Simulated assay, not measured.
Amino acid sequence: MSSPLISAAELASSLGRVIVLDVRYRMGGPPGREEYAAGHISGAAYVDLDTDLADAPAEPVDDRGRHPLPDPDVFVAAMQRAGVHTDLPVVVYDDWQGRAASRAWWLLRHYGHRDVRVLDGGWGAWVAAGGDVETGEPATLRGDFHGTPGSMPVVDADGLLAVDVVVDARAPERHRGEVEPVDPVAGHVPGAVNVDTGRNLAQDGRFRDATELRTLYAGVGVTPGGNVAAYCGSGVTATHDILAMEVAGTRAALFPASWSGWVADPAREVERG
């Protein structure tokens, strides 16, 4: 695998030899199953972010955050239902410019799958390219995926402050603490820099190339091989920044609890501005 991204044209030429997962999802919106049933890439299986790629959060939210990492047995079972095999390439896509698909990409990589890619431009790019589309919910043959977590770097709240560069993937106004539409406290982790996920993308909604992404992240102090971690609101869209940094040649850790988990402890410091 040379890149964590795949183009619509590359995927079209690979159908039948790869496992395709539809991870359509919007933060705060309904699950994407209805959109999947109305039309999806031929042969794709639907994966629900809230139930397959995350555990249910505590009420009130605790230090695991709003989208805790899934229980390993639940995740592995979900991937098996979706037809994932350990030794077959996987392509994931969404209609949110890769923000949900990146979570599936990260989890599969975290569980040891060696060949996972995100469809660059997602569902929109596939449709624009005239790719094969099918409707309904076709039966999926069960896969043999049996990975265990531990292949991607993870950092907890205590370890986060020891990281050289902490990247906040949220919108700039949330990072600055001017607004907070979801979590009870506004602001950011002390010392964190901001690269909101939209900056990873070109005007056509696809990821910027590796050179542009290296320049973007170098501007906030990220260097290839550096000690870097990323977070967002709940641990979902931070994987978009992690994917972008992977394209740029940097392996970044995920802080899974993200801002929602950070502020669950009122003793933790908050920075604004």
Score class of each variant (00 low, 15 high):
Ser102Arg: 02
Arg24Gly: 08
Asp48Leu: 00
Asp132Ser: 14
Pro153Cys: 12
Arg109Tyr: 00
Ala54Phe: 03
Ser42Val: 08
Gly83Gln: 04
Arg214Cys: 00
Ala229Asp: 09
Pro68Tyr: 13
His240Asp: 08
Pro181His: 12
Thr51Cys: 03
Val163Thr: 15
Thr215Lys: 09
Ala100Asp: 07
Pro153Asp: 11
Phe207Val: 05
Asp120Cys: 07
Ser13Trp: 02
Ala169Met: 02
Arg208Gly: 06
Tyr111Met: 04
Gly261Met: 09
Ala12Tyr: 03
Pro30Gln: 10
Gly249Glu: 03
Glu59His: 12
Ile19Glu: 09
Pro57Gln: 11
Asp132Cys: 02
Asp22Gln: 11
Arg33Asp: 13
Val270Ile: 14
Leu53Ser: 04
Trp259Ile: 05
Asp265Trp: 03
Pro256Thr: 06
Gly147Ser: 06
Ala230Lys: 00
Trp262Arg: 06
Ala78Asp: 02
Val247Met: 08
Ala58Leu: 05
Thr250Phe: 01
Val263Ser: 09
Leu69Thr: 11
Gly112Met: 10
His146Gly: 15
Arg99Lys: 07
Ser260Gly: 13
Thr51Tyr: 00
Val127Tyr: 06
Phe207Ile: 06
Leu201Thr: 14
Asp94Cys: 10
Gly147Thr: 05
Ala101Leu: 11
Leu160Gly: 02
His85Gly: 03
Gly205Asn: 15
Glu34Gln: 15
Gly221Gln: 08
Val263Thr: 13
Glu59Ile: 07
Asn194Thr: 05
Val18Ala: 12
His188Leu: 07
Gln203Glu: 15
Asp168Gln: 06
Ala9Lys: 14
Leu108Pro: 00
Val163Phe: 07
Pro172Ala: 14
His110Val: 02
Ala230His: 11
Arg251Gly: 01
Asp164Asn: 10
Gly65Arg: 10
Val23Ala: 15
Gly121Ile: 07
Ser2Trp: 03
Gly219Glu: 10
Ala100Gly: 13
Pro30Phe: 11
Val20Leu: 06
Gly16Trp: 05
Asp120Ala: 09
Ala125Arg: 12
Val91Met: 12
Thr250Met: 01
Arg114Cys: 00
Asp265His: 08
Tyr217Pro: 01
Leu213Phe: 07
Met245Arg: 03
Gly226Thr: 03
Ala56Phe: 04
Gly221Thr: 05
Ala128Lys: 13
Gly131Ile: 13
Val220Ser: 04
Asp48Ile: 00
Glu212Lys: 09
Thr140His: 10
Glu59Asp: 14
Glu34His: 11
Tyr93Asp: 10
Pro57Lys: 12
Ala9Val: 13
Gly150Cys: 14
Leu201Cys: 14
Glu34Lys: 15
His146Lys: 12
His40Ala: 14
Val118Lys: 03
Gly29Ala: 14
Arg251Pro: 00
Gly226Lys: 05
Thr237His: 03
Asn227Phe: 01
Val179Gly: 12
Gly83Asn: 06
Ser42Trp: 01
Val270Pro: 02
Ala169Val: 02
Thr215His: 12
Trp262Ile: 10
Gly65Glu: 11
Pro138Phe: 05
Asp132Phe: 00
Glu246Phe: 00
Gly83Lys: 01
Thr135Arg: 15
Asp94Lys: 08
Gly131Trp: 12
Ala8Asn: 14
Leu243Asn: 04
Tyr231Asn: 04
